[in-house]
């Protein structure tokens, strides 16, 4: 097991170089002037474009540009984010906690709802519950994230006014910035509780509800589908039949034997759900003006802010590798047939 983890970790540098070299090569499709234009907001700034090209070495070959970037990163400097106007690392520190909270609070209900609906669906195969849950999950899975997000925005923010946009209300954001509100962890949900500000905690949760509902609705649909087919599969397997033949009660068979085994593919899927969520937050954060990584990276991508995109891609890549590693370890724990050596 230990060797397995080490081997997985050795894969991290592969992801790092693979992703960043790919992006640098992509940038070669642009002429130096076009690369310089990504530094420019108004046409007036173009007057001095040759100086801009010179200053940032935009006419140098890809290997020079990549080496310059790598040297910086090795010194702990991830470069400057044009999209936000501050060092990439500062943007990251500012935005990662918000997205992490959002993703985590979406991930847990996604898995729970998915597994629950998937199993009742399978246990009632072709019954009315199965039909309803399947139709609903297929329908949700067919919804573009932005369509669902916009409709929720119109109804619950525009129409009913129940939920806010952004991360906290203006009044609270002022308090957080100015008063003696300590940012212990950077995670607003935790920090507000640690500061004993339950009102801010409720406010933060309130602002996360619409993004979370959007993400859970769409992401859990695929878990439902996999859970259902996985459970159907296990229910027909020999050990379940044996258990039934032994005279065990149906519910015990289902719970103790079938469900446990059916969960195995769901664990693998957990890693991919994280990728799905990371894609999903790009859209949800844009629609709900939620100040996280997704919105930052979307802005960075459109502005060709390579420093931010590279850092973002490296980071999410590493996150996914690590998440998959945990999934594999968990897999081995649940399924005794698997041994990593």
């Amino acid at each position: 097991m230990f060797v397995f983890i080490i081997r997985r970790l050795l894969f991290l540098p592969v992801v790092f170089f693979g992703v960043t070299i790919f992006i640098v090569l992509l940038m070669q499709f642009l002429s130096p002037t076009q690369r310089a234009a990504t530094y420019v907001r108004s046409e007036a700034q173009l007057r001095n474009i040759d100086a801009i090209i010179d200053q940032y070495g935009l006419d140098k070959g890809p290997h020079v540009q990549y080496w310059n970037w790598l040297k910086q990163v090795l010194r702990g400097n991830w470069g400057f984010s044009k999209a936000t106007g501050e060092p990439v690392w500062d943007s990251f520190k500012r935005r990662f906690p918000a997205t992490f909270e959002l993703a985590l609070l979406s991930f847990i209900p996604t898995m729970l709802v998915g597994v629950w609906l998937g199993s009742i669906s399978a246990l009632n195969r072709d019954g009315i519950i199965d039909q309803i849950s399947r139709t609903t999950s297929i329908f949700l899975w067919s919804l573009p994230t932005f369509v669902l997000a916009i409709w929720l925005l119109v109804i619950f923010y525009g129409g009913l006014g129940w939920f806010g946009l952004g991360q906290v209300t203006t009044a609270h954001s002022l308090e957080i910035i100015r008063s003696n509100f300590h940012r212990y962890t950077g995670f607003l949900t935790l920090d507000s509780l640690l500061n004993g500000r339950f009102d801010i905690f409720l406010d933060v949760v309130n602002h996360m509800i619409l993004p979370i509902v959007t993400l859970v609705a769409i992401q859990s649909a695929q878990i439902v589908r996999i859970m259902r087919s996985s459970l159907l599969d296990t229910l027909t397997q020999d050990f379940v039949r044996t258990a039934r033949a032994k005279g065990l009660a149906e519910s015990i068979v289902n719970r103790k034997h079938a469900l446990r085994n059916a969960l195995i593919p769901i664990i693998t899927l957990g890693g991919f759900t994280i990728v799905g969520l990371l894609n999903g937050v790009v859209i949800t954060e844009t629609v709900f003006a939620y100040p996280g990584m997704g919105k930052w990276l979307a802005d960075a991508a459109v502005q060709l802010d390579t420093a931010s995109v590279m850092a973002g891609a490296v980071f999410t890549g590493l996150l996914v590798v690590i998440a998959n590693m945990f999934a594999d370890v968990l897999y081995a724990v649940i399924d005794p047939r698997i041994r990593y050596n």
Binding site: V15, V19, M27, N279, V309
Partner: peptide, 23 residues
């Protein structure tokens, strides 16, 4: 398989955005 792992590990939407912006 390593290339495929890398592809699975990157946020497809953001990178697609970069590609379309560039091309």
């Amino acid at each position: 398989m390593r290339i495929i792992d890398v592809i699975f590990a990157i946020p497809g939407l953001v990178l697609s955005m970069v590609i379309v912006t560039i091309l």
